[in-house]
Design a protein around this nucleic acid. Structure first.
Lengths: 207, 207, 207, 207
DNA sequence: AATGAATGAGAGTTCATTCAT
DNA sequence: AATGAATGAACTCTCATTCAT
C-alpha cells in the first residue's frame, strides 16, 4: 500500500487529476509523470476510477484528520469553529491540488462522485456537530445546522479556490482573519445591527 | 442567434453538460436530445468548446441580470446583500443545471475554464462593490472586500449545491433566511459576542 | 444493412475470423482489409461481438436456406438426406471460411458461443426431422434422432474440415459419394452384415 | 517432467484452456488455479504456446493409447471399429475438457494448430488402417479410407461435443449403440436398401 | 440550412513475458 | 526451484470533427 512505486503513482495522479480533471487526465501521462510503465499502474490499481477513489479517500481522510485533530473539544464552539477555519485553510494551502479536485469532482451522479460526496458529507458533519452544540448552549444564533455547516464550508472553500487561481503564490492562511470574522460576527457592524429588522430572528423550535 | 434549432441545442447542451460534465457529455447525445442531426450543431457552433462557451456566457449573463436587476442601489448595502442572497438562490433554484455546471467547470487552466472564471469574477465584483460601499459607510465591519465577496458567493453556492444533490425536491429559497442571518449577523449570538476577543478587529487601513 | 461499406466490412470480417479466430482477429486488420477506417466498423456494428454475431446469423441463415431449399419434401427421407449431404458440402466448399468459423467458434460458454450453438441446433433440427420421418416409415433403422442428426452433421463437417486444411484446392463435392454411402449404407458390406450380431437392433420404442 | 507443481499447472491449464479457449485463458488465472506463482509456470514451460503444446501432446498421446490399446488386432475390422467408437466415447467422457480443446483449437494456421492437427491426423490414421484392412477383406464396402476415417471421427466427436454442451450430466457411453449402428450399418434399413440405387457402388480401384 | 456516414487520433485496459531476488 | 512486481505492445472502443450531399 505504500511501496515507492505506489507512492509515486499516487503523487502523479493527484497532480494530474488536479491539473486536468478526472476525465482529461490520462493514464499515459500519469504513468510517465510517475516514471513507471502504464501497466504498473494497473498492477497496483484496478482502474482509473479506483485510482481516483483511493486518492479521494486518502485525501478526505487526511483533511478530516488534519483539521479535526486540531479542534479541542473542551474549548467553546466559537473557538472550535475558528480552529476549523484556520486549519482547513492550512490544509488547502498545503494540498492545493487536492483542494481543486475536491471542489470540482464531487458533483454529479457517477458512482465515483457519489462516493466522493459521502466522504465530504462526513467531514461537514463534524462542523455541523459543533454548530449544534453552540446553538444548544445559546452561544450561537439559531440556524439550521446543516445549512450552516455547508455555508461555512463553502465560504472557506470558495475563497480559497478563488485565490488559488487568481493569486497562486499567496499564503491561504492570510484569509483566516477575514473569514473568521465574517463567519462568526457577520458582515454588519455592531452599531447598525440592533436597528435592523431585515433578518428575522428564527424561532428556536422550528427545525 | 435564437432560431428554434439553436434554442433546442442550447437546452439540450445545458441538460447534458450538467448531467455528465463537459468531458463526458457527447455531441451525439446533445444532438439526439435536441432532435437535430449532429452536423446541425456544427452548423451553428464551431466546436464543442464554443457551444459550451456560448452557454456559459448566456448563463452568467442571465445570472448577472437576474440577480443584480433586483438590487435597488438606493437601499442600504445590507438590504442589497440580502437581495443578492435571495435572488441568487432563486436563480440557482430555477437553473439548477447551470448552477452545477458553474461550480464544477470553472476551475482549471483550459481556455474555456479561464473564460468561465472571468465571467464569474465579473459577477462577484458586483457583490464586492456593495461590500466596499458598506465598509465605507461603516455599516459593515471592515473586511477585505474580495475575500468577503467570494466568501458570500461560496456560502450561498455551496449550500445550494449540497441541497441540489441531497434534497433535489427542496425549494432552495427556503435556505434564504438562514444564509442571510449567517452572512449578515454571523453565527455568534449578541449575548456572547462582546465578551469574546477571539476575532480581532481588523485595522481599517490594512488592505 | 447492405451499404457498400457494410458489405466490405462483412467480407473482411469473415475472412479474418476464419483466418485467425474470433480472439486473434483484430478490428484494425478487419478495417484495413475492408478499406475503411476503424471507426466506420463501429459506426455500423456496436462491437466486435456484435459484428461476429451478425456474421454468424447471416451465415447460419444462409446455410439453412442454401441446404434446405434444395430438399424436396415429397421425396423419400433417404433422398432428402442424400441432398443434405451434397448441398452441405457444396455450401462448405463455397463458404470455406464460414465453415471453419462454424466448427471452431461454437463451443464454449460465452454468450456469443451459446447463441452460435442455438443457430446451429436449429439447422441440425431440420436433419433430425427427416430422420424421424424415415424412422417412422421404417425406411430408416431405429436410432435416437438427435444423436443421429449430430452424427451426420459431424461426419460431413469433419470430413470437409479435414480436407479444407489438408487439400485446400480439392472440390469438397468429391466427398459426397463416399459420405453418402457411409451415412446411408454404413461401412459394413451386405455379405457380412447379416452374420454379425455386434450391433444390437435397438428396440423401436425405447426413446 | 511430472513434479507436483508441473502436474498442478498441467491440470489447471487443461481446465482453463477448455473453459475459455487458448486465447482467453490467461497465465495469471492458470497460475492462481494451480496455486503457484506466475513465474513458476515460466520456470517449467517456455511460453503459453509451449504449455499448450505440451498439454496437447500429452492429451493426444493419451487418446491414442487409451483407445488403441483396447483394439484387438486379431478381431475383425468391424469389431475393431466398434471398439474404437466405444473407447473414444469413454475417453471423451472422462476427459471432456480435452475433448472440447481438441475440437476447437485444432483448426487454423498457427504453428500450434498445425502441430495439433498433426497429432490428430496420427490418431485418425489408425482408424484409416482398420478401414483399409476391412476394405481389403471385402468386409467393408469400398470407400476412400481417408474420408471414411474422418467421417467416423467427426461422427463420434460431434455427437459427443453436442451432448457435452446440451446435456452435461449425461454419460457419453450411452451414445455408443446408436453411433455404432449408424457407422457400421448406416441409416437405411435392410428392407429398402436393396431397392435403392441412389448410392452408386464405388468402383473398387478409383482411389 | 441541415444532414449523418465516415474518420482516425487517442483513450482505458489486458496480459504474456521478463528478471532481480 | 520459485517468486511476483514490473513492463509495454497491442487490443477494443469512443467521439469531436469533417464533408459530400
Amino acid at each position: 500500500m505504500a511501496s515507492a512505486k505506489t507512492q509515486s503513482i499516487f503523487k502523479a495522479a493527484i497532480d494530474l487529476f488536479s491539473e486536468r480533471g478526472f476525465e482529461k487526465a490520462t493514464m499515459d501521462e500519469i504513468a510517465s509523470r510517475a516514471h513507471v510503465a502504464k501497466g504498473t499502474i494497473y498492477y497496483h490499481f484496478k482502474s482509473k476510477e479506483e485510482l481516483f477513489s483511493f486518492l479521494v479517500q486518502e485525501g478526505t481522510k487526511l483533511l478530516h484528520e488534519s483539521v479535526l485533530s486540531k479542534v479541542n473539544p473542551r474549548k467553546t464552539p466559537t473557538e472550535q469553529i475558528e480552529t476549523i477555519i484556520r486549519e482547513q485553510l492550512r490544509f488547502f494551502d498545503h494540498y492545493r491540488d487536492f483542494c481543486v479536485i475536491l471542489l470540482r469532482e464531487a458533483w454529479g451522479d457517477d458512482v465515483r462522485q457519489r462516493e466522493f460526496r459521502r466522504m465530504l458529507v462526513h467531514y461537514v458533519h463534524a462542523i455541523e456537530q459543533i454548530m449544534r452544540a453552540g446553538i444548544e448552549s445559546e452561544e450561537f444564533l439559531y440556524t439550521k445546522a446543516e445549512t450552516g455547516a455547508w455555508s461555512i464550508f463553502g465560504s472557506i472553500s470558495m475563497a480559497a479556490l478563488h485565490h488559488i487561481f487568481s493569486e497562486p503564490d499567496m499564503d491561504l492562511l492570510l484569509l483566516a482573519p477575514d473569514l473568521t470574522r465574517m463567519i462568526l460576527k457577520g458582515m454588519v457592524s455592531q452599531i447598525t445591527k440592533d436597528a435592523e429588522s431585515l433578518v428575522d430572528e428564527a424561532p428556536r423550535k422550528a427545525q
